[in-house]
Design a protein around this nucleic acid. Structure first.
Length: 726
DNA sequence: TTCCTTAGCGACTTTGTGTGACACA
DNA sequence: AAAGTCGCTAAGGAA
C-alpha cells in the first residue's frame, strides 16, 4: 500500500517522500484497511519500531485537515518531547502539556495536536480545560499501561472521561503486544490489529557456554576470554555494532560499565569531550565513575544520574561513540535508543518482601524490542544469559516463546478509586450515587468482570471515606464536592495526602523540618530506601528532634520519610549536592526528584493551609521558595531577583548585601565585580523596580489595616481559592 | 629473604522507574 | 535470592 494513496494532506505526503517513506508497513496497511481514515476506533498491538507513530500521525493530520483537534497521550515526559518534535514543523500547530511549565494551559486550545502525559490530561480534565470538549481524535500511546499497578487507573479514567465528554471522538490505541488485546479492543469498541512484523529482523536467543542458542541455529563466539557478559559485548563490537545491557540494579549497571571500559579501551577526542561534560554535570562519585567509563567507550544509565548526564550518554550512544550502555529499566520503555544487540543479563528483579522474581514477559519484550536499528543494522539480537545448562530451555519457555501477560484494570484499587471518584464528582461527571456507579459500569474494569459486587462495595466504601473526610457532601440523592474536595482534586492530590496536610498542623508548632517530614509521609511523595547505615541519622532525629515531627509512627515508611526529609533539609540549608549524595548514598538525579516532588506538594500544602488549616501562610510560602531554590531563609529577599540563584545570592549576601534595597544602595562597582557587568545591570534594574513597588504596596497596606480594624474580628475570611504572593 | 601485588574466599550489604500545581514581571 | 563490595589471607614474582 502506497503513501500516495492515503487521504492525507499533500505537504505530509511530500515530507514522507523526502524521508524515503513511500510504502506502508504491513501492520500500518492493516490499520488503514480496518478504517483508520474512516474514523473507526483502532487498537494496534504491534511490536516496538513497527511504525506506530506514523499510523497516528497520518490519522491526526487528516483529522486536522478536516477541522478536527487531536490529543496524543504518552506515559512519560521524555516521550512527550520526543513526539512533540516528531509532529512539529509539518503545517500543523503542535502543543505540549506536561507537569513541567512548558506552556500555559489556556493556550493549549489553540493547537491542532496536543501531546500530553496521562496525569497532565487528568489534571486538565479536573481543572475543566474547555478545549478538551473539542478533541475529535484521541491517540493513546502505550495503552497497555492501563494494566500498570501504579498508573494504570489514571489512564483508564482519563480515557473513560474523554469518551463520556466526546461520544463521537475517534480513538486510536497503540500498544505493545499483550496477552488479551481482544478484551481491551472490546472495551474501546475498536478494530484489533495484531502483528509480529518488524522492519528489522529480530533474533532472540540464550547464551550459554560460549555460544548463543537461537531457534534452529546457534552462534559460536570467537575465543571467549572474559566473563560471559563481556564476551557478548566484544562479539558485537568486533562486528561494528553496539550493545545495550539490561541489569537489575544501579550498582550492577555501574559495575558493568567499569568492567566494559577496561575491556573496550576505546579512545577518541569525542569521548574525552563527552567525559568532561559528564564530569561537570555530575560531580558525585557516581558521576566520576561514569566520566571515567565514557572515556573508554562504555557508559551506564539509571535514574540517579542528573538529566544532563543522561542526555550526554544518550547522545554519545546515538552518535556511535559510546559502544555500550548498561542500564536499569530506565531505557527499556520510553526513549528511542536502539542497538544492534541487547543483552538481558538480569531477568530477575528483587521485590520487597518477595525476594527475586522474574520480570514480566511484557517487560522482556520491551527490552528485546530495542534490538536492531532500522536502516542501520542488518538485524537485531536479543540475548538472555543462562547460568546453567538447564536454564537454556527454561529461558526460551519463560521469555522468548512465552505469551505476554494479560492486562487487567487497576481502577478498582482503593487508593486509585478515592482520587478518581472525587474527581468524577468535583468535575461534574457524576452528581448522584447512581451516576457514579453508572460511570464506573462503563469502565474497563466492569467490562472485564461479569460480577460487579466488588466494584460496588469499593465505590460505597470510597464514597463514605470522601464524605467523612469532608470532601463531598450528600443532599438526599445528590452528591457534590465541597470546597476542600474541589481544591484537593484540582491540586491533583491524593485525598489522603490532603487530609494529612490539613490535619497535620492542628495544635502543633510549625517547623520547616516537621513540614517536610509530613509531606514526605504522604502517598504522593517518593521516599528513599532505608539502608543499614542510615539508622544513625534516623535514631538521632528520634532522640533529639522528635518535637519537630508532626506525626508519630514507627512504620518503615516513617523512617524512610525521615531520611528523605533530611535530604530536603540539607538542600534548603545550602549544603552542596556532592556532600548530600555522599552522606546519604543517593544520586544527584535523586535529589532533583525529591526537590521537584516537594515543590509540588509544598505548593499544594500552602493552598490547603491557607484555606482550611492553621494560619501559617508566611512560613509556608517561605518554605516553598526555599525548596524551589535550595536556600536558607536569609537569602529569600535576594532570590526573588531573576538571574540570582542559590550560588550568586550567597555570594552577594556574604558581602553584606542582604536585600534588593541594599543592592540598590551598594557601590555599583562592587556589584559588578561580584556578578559581572551584564547580570549586575539586569539585577539592579529589577531591584529598583521592586523597591518602588514595595513602597507603594506598604502605603496601600497601611491604609487597608486601618479599615480592617473597624471590622468585627469574628468574621472568618471567605474560602476563596486565591493565590499567595503577587 | 623481604616487599609488593594479586587472586581467592567468606562475610556483609543492598536491591527499578515515574507522574502531578501555578504563573511572575 | 543474587550480585557487588570489602577485608582478609595465601600465593606468586621481583629485588
Amino acid at each position: 500500500m502506497k503513501i500516495n494513496e492515503m487521504p492525507i494532506p499533500n505537504h505530509l505526503r511530500e515530507a514522507y517522500a523526502k524521508n524515503g517513506i513511500e510504502e506502508l508497513y504491513p501492520p500500518q496497511a492493516e490499520c488503514v484497511n480496518a478504517g483508520l481514515f474512516n474514523r473507526k476506533n483502532i487498537l494496534a498491538a504491534i511490536p516496538t519500531a513497527s511504525g506506530k507513530t506514523l499510523i497516528a500521525e497520518m490519522a491526526m493530520q487528516k483529522e486536522v485537515a478536516e477541522g478536527g483537534k487531536c490529543l496524543y497521550i504518552v506515559p512519560l515526559k521524555a516521550l512527550a518531547s520526543e513526539k512533540y518534535e516528531d509532529f512539529s514543523g509539518k503545517s500543523v500547530k503542535v502543543g505540549i502539556a506536561t507537569g513541567d511549565p512548558d506552556q500555559r494551559d489556556e493556550y493549549l486550545g489553540r493547537y491542532d495536536i496536543i501531546v500530553a502525559t496521562s496525569e497532565k490530561t487528568d489534571s486538565l480534565i479536573r481543572n475543566k480545560a474547555g478545549w478538551l470538549k473539542s478533541i475529535s481524535l484521541l491517540v493513546v500511546d502505550e495503552i497497555h499501561l492501563i494494566g500498570d499497578e501504579s498508573r494504570g487507573g489514571t489512564l483508564e479514567m482519563v480515557i473513560a472521561q474523554l469518551r463520556f465528554q466526546n461520544p463521537d471522538m475517534q480513538i486510536i490505541g497503540l500498544s505493545a503486544t499483550m496477552g488479551n488485546p481482544e478484551s481491551l479492543a472490546k472495551w474501546l469498541d475498536a478494530a484489533l490489529i495484531t502483528s509480529e512484523w518488524r522492519p528489522v529482523d529480530l533474533r532472540e536467543g540464550v547464551y550459554y557456554d560460549g555460544a548463543i542458542h537461537f531457534h534452529g541455529t546457534e552462534r559460536l563466539l570467537e575465543t571467549p576470554k572474559k566473563d560471559d557478559d563481556l564476551n557478548l559485548l566484544l562479539d558485537t563490537v568486533n562486528e561494528g555494532g553496539q550493545c545495550l545491557v539490561f541489569v537489575s540494579s544501579r550498582r550492577s549497571a555501574e559495575a558493568y560499565a567499569k568492567r566494559a571500559a577496561v575491556t573496550l579501551k576505546k579512545t577518541s577526542p569525542t569521548l574525552d569531550e563527552l567525559s568532561k561534560r559528564i564530569g561537570k554535570a555530575d560531580t558525585t562519585a557516581s558521576g566520576k565513575n561514569l566520566a571515567l567509563a565514557v572515556k573508554s567507550g562504555a557508559a551506564f544509565h539509571h535514574a540517579g544520574l542528573p538529566r544532563e548526564a543522561r542526555a550526554a550518554v544518550e547522545e554519545g550512544f546515538r552518535n556511535g561513540d559510546i559502544l555500550c550502555i548498561s542500564s536499569t529499566p530506565t531505557l527499556a520503555a520510553g526513549l528511542n535508543l536502539p542497538a544492534r544487540r541487547v543483552i538481558i543479563r538480569d531477568y530477575q528483579r528483587y521485590e520487597r518482601g518477595a525476594g527475586m522474581n522474574p520480570i514480566p514477559v511484557l517487560e522482556y519484550r520491551q527490552m528485546a524490542g530495542r534490538a536492531g536499528r532500522p536502516r542501520l543494522d542488518p538485524y537485531g539480537e536479543a540475548v538472555l544469559i543462562a547460568k546453567q545448562q538447564r536454564d537454556v530451555d527454561r529461558l526460551f519457555e519463560e521469555f522468548i516463546d512465552a505469551p505476554a501477560e494479560d492486562i487487567t484494570s487497576q481502577c478498582q484499587r482503593e487508593n486509585e478509586l478515592r482520587s478518581h471518584l472525587l474527581a468524577l464528582i468535583t468535575s461534574g461527571f457524576a452528581q448522584t450515587d447512581g451516576e457514579v456507579r453508572g460511570f464506573m459500569e462503563k469502565s474497563f474494569y466492569a467490562s472485564q468482570k461479569s460480577v460487579h459486587r466488588r466494584l460496588d462495595k469499593n465505590i460505597e466504601k470510597t464514597l463514605a471515606y470522601l464524605e467523612k473526610s469532608g470532601m463531598v457532601e450528600r443532599e438526599g440523592d445528590e452528591i457534590h464536592g465541597t470546597l476542600f474536595g474541589a481544591l484537593t482534586s484540582r491540586l491533583y492530590l491524593d485525598p489522603e495526602s490532603a487530609m494529612m496536610i490539613k490535619d497535620g498542623l492542628a495544635g502543633k508548632k510549625f517547623t520547616a523540618f516537621g513540614m517536610l517530614h509530613l509531606l514526605c509521609m504522604t502517598p504522593d511523595m517518593f521516599r528513599f530506601y532505608l539502608k543499614a547505615s542510615d539508622e544513625k541519622f534516623v535514631d538521632k532525629i528520634l532522640k533529639e528532634r522528635s518535637e519537630e515531627l508532626l506525626l508519630d509512627d514507627l512504620s518503615e515508611e516513617f523512617f524512610a520519610a525521615i531520611k528523605t526529609a533530611l535530604v530536603a533539609e540539607e538542600w534548603i540549608s545550602e549544603i552542596g549536592e556532592d556532600s548530600i549524595c555522599e552522606r546519604f548514598g543517593v544520586g544527584a538525579g535523586d535529589i532533583h526528584a525529591v526537590v521537584e516532588n516537594l515543590r509540588w506538594l509544598m505548593h499544594a500544602a500552602g493552598r490547603i493551609c491557607h484555606e482550611f488549616a492553621a494560619d501559617c501562610d508566611d512560613e509556608m510560602r517561605d518554605l516553598e521558595l526555599r525548596v524551589t531554590h535550595g536556600v536558607k531563609e536569609e537569602l529569600l529577599p535576594l532570590i526573588a531577583l531573576k538571574g540570582i540563584g542559590r550560588v550568586r545570592a550567597r555570594r552577594i549576601f556574604d558581602r553584606g548585601i542582604t536585600s534588593p534595597e541594599k543592592l540598590m544602595a551598594a557601590e555599583k562597582d562592587e556589584v559588578v565585580s561580584i556578578l559581572g557587568a551584564t547580570i549586575a545591570k539586569n539585577v539592579l534594574e529589577q531591584a529598583g523596580r521592586r523597591s518602588a513597588k514595595k513602597r507603594e504596596q506598604e502605603l496601600e497596606e497601611s491604609e487597608d489595616e486601618h479599615e480592617e480594624e473597624d471590622l468585627p474580628t469574628e468574621k472568618k475570611p471567605q474560602a476563596t481559592l486565591f493565590d499567595f504572593g503577587g
